[in-house]
């Protein structure tokens, strides 16, 4: 039953080969989606092109449904998967800062790498900025170590646990929420398309 342990079965080198291949597929999908272009990404925050939301939530519900169906059929042990530990307050504060950087710089880390790969100078500079920002974080972490380690530290915490619902109910709710967001996104895009036509 998966997850597989490639390192144990085929060795460390092969595992790294599979990581590179996964990265290739990941980068390919991001570039196909138009995420190598900062203008496509920033447009999300001016409601003109809701590509970021559509791709992200389609990816999340696709992977989520595959994971929990595979778990149901015994093909994948969902309990063995890495679940990002919840550090609520650093996560929210970091997310707000991240969002500000996203709209100022036009990329997030993964998309900036794809932009860099297609020779966009702004993407390369964004990656340089990322490295600087990470360095600054490293320099300032000691002053807020307690906050970073302990504020809202719930360990491994899932939405079904928070809501007290079965996993399948949360999965279904997430699917419905994503579809409602897609519907809203299409309406917003139509609105701006009409408005632009009127202006021209």
């Amino acid at each position: 039953m998966s997850p597989l342990d490639i390192s144990a079965s085929l060795g460390h080198v092969w595992q790294n080969v599979f990581y590179v291949l996964t990265g290739v597929a990941f980068g390919f999908a991001l570039e196909r989606a138009g995420f190598g272009n900062a203008r496509n990404l920033a447009a999300q925050f001016y409601l003109k092109d809701m590509r970021v939301l559509k791709v992200m939530f389609t990816a999340i519900i696709t992977a989520m449904l595959l994971i929990f169906w595979a778990n149901l059929f015994g093909l994948l042990d969902a309990r063995a998967l890495f679940i990002n530990p919840t550090h609520l307050w650093p996560g929210i504060l970091g997310g707000l800062i991240f969002g500000i950087g996203f709209v100022v710089g036009g990329y997030c880390p993964g998309t900036a790498l794809v932009s860099l790969a297609t020779l966009k100078i702004d993407g390369m500079l964004f990656v340089l900025g990322l490295a600087i920002g990470m360095f600054l974080f490293g320099e300032s972490i000691d002053a807020m170590r307690v906050f970073w380690d302990t504020a809202g530290n719930f360990g491994e915490l899932t939405l079904p646990e928070v809501l007290g619902l079965g996993t399948e109910w949360v999965v279904f709710a997430v699917v419905l929420m994503a579809l409602a967001m897609f519907w809203g996104a299409e309406r917003v895009e139509q609105y701006f398309a009409r408005k632009n036509k009127g202006e021209n």
Binding site: M1, I61, L65, F68, W69, N71, L72, G74, D77, A78, R79, G166, T167, E168, W169, V171, F172, V175, L176, A178, L179
Partner: peptide, 26 residues
């Protein structure tokens, strides 16, 4: 839309394996 809703609803009907199902599998 039908595929997404159907896949979500299917899980609702079938549920997720409990501890003893998972134990039997392992």
């Amino acid at each position: 839309v039908l595929a997404a809703v159907g896949a979500g609803a299917g899980l609702l009907v079938l549920g997720q394996p409990n501890l003893h199902d998972r134990l039997a599998r392992l």
